[in-house]
Simulated scan of single mutants.
Amino acid sequence: MKTAIIIGGTGLVGTQLVNLLLNDQDFDKIVVFGRKSLNITNQKLEEHLINFSTPENWEKLVKGDVLFSCMGTTLAKAGNKEKQYEIDFTYQYNFADIASRNGVSEYVLISSAGANIHSPFFYLRMKGKLDAAVKELPFKKVVIVRPTQLYGSRHERRISESIGLALSKALNKIGLFKKRRPIHVQRVAEAMIESLQYYDSSVTVSSYELFGLAKFYDRNKNVYYKKSYVSG
């Protein structure tokens, strides 16, 4: 039995991941670090409300087998690029660094399709920089998942995002941009968990591959399919 650590547990993918892990027989303890409470009562759940800027207050609590990092924000929510960088890069990297030094052996990170340290776009460049940085940490295995546009139940409505999602789905239906099709947040969360079983070493997983990876495990039958099943 394993202990999972999660940061970003109140986000779109994070909430799905927490629920899946609480019902996963391979994990007997789920430790969530965040600024806001999940407001969940479960005997497997241990929750720590922290300030990510003061690791000296919580770094000794970061102990477990695998770290799932779902943290992230938008420029609009952050207010400026400096604050977004602090949340999306600094907080995540520092937490991963502490986890690796505390003996956590596996790390699963949500990045973004198009992440590239040389990208002309701030967001993708920031994501690419984080991807490159965490690969250098002493984890035994680092899995970086790069989903395309995410969709699922949000608390707030984003008009431009809804329009883009509808357009992407329409194009996918006629066979265009299949490898760039939107992906549901639950499927991403499932794939993050299954990646630990499927991959034997560090890897970067495309959004297209996430579709197949999420099908690797039939939770109703409690059966793992052959690795060749993962096809997107």
Rank of each mutant, 00 (worst) to 15 (best):
D218C: 11
E190Y: 13
L176E: 01
A132P: 02
V104G: 01
N116S: 15
V230K: 12
N39E: 11
L22K: 01
H118S: 12
Y224K: 15
I50H: 05
Y123S: 10
K60A: 01
Q25R: 10
T148K: 09
D88W: 09
Y198F: 15
S153E: 15
S100D: 06
V31M: 02
L130E: 12
K215Q: 15
S202Q: 13
A133Y: 07
Y229N: 13
R154G: 08
M1C: 13
I30V: 15
L196G: 12
G34W: 04
E86I: 02
R35N: 07
E46N: 04
S111C: 11
A115V: 09
D218P: 05
N51R: 08
G11V: 08
T3Q: 09
K127F: 02
K178H: 04
L20E: 06
H48Q: 01
E209S: 13
I117W: 01
N57T: 04
V205G: 09
G152Y: 14
S201N: 07
S228F: 01
A113E: 10
V134A: 10
M126T: 14
V188S: 12
A170L: 09
S105P: 00
N102F: 04
S100T: 03
V230Y: 08
A99W: 01
L124W: 10
R157T: 11
A214S: 14
I5M: 01
I163F: 06
L196Y: 08
S195M: 08
F122Y: 15
S153V: 07
Y198E: 06
Q43D: 11
G114I: 10
I159G: 03
E56I: 00
Q92W: 00
D24Q: 06
I87T: 15
E47V: 04
Y225N: 14
I98Q: 03
I5R: 04
L176V: 07
Y208M: 07
D65A: 00
F33P: 01
K44R: 04
S53D: 15
G103R: 00
Y91C: 01
N116R: 05
T15A: 06
E209H: 14
L38R: 05
Y208S: 10
E86N: 09
M71K: 06
K140H: 08
N51E: 12
F68M: 08
H155P: 03
L165Q: 11
L75I: 14
I6G: 02
Q92E: 03
L49C: 06
Y217C: 06
R146A: 05
R154T: 11
K226I: 01
L150M: 13
N94M: 09
E194R: 15
A96V: 07
S228E: 15
E86F: 00
K127W: 05
Y93G: 12
K179L: 02
N220P: 00
V31N: 00
L176A: 09
S160Q: 13
F139A: 10
G152P: 08
S112K: 10
K178F: 00
F122N: 13
T74R: 10
K221E: 13
K226W: 00
V145M: 14
G9K: 03
G152K: 10
F216S: 06
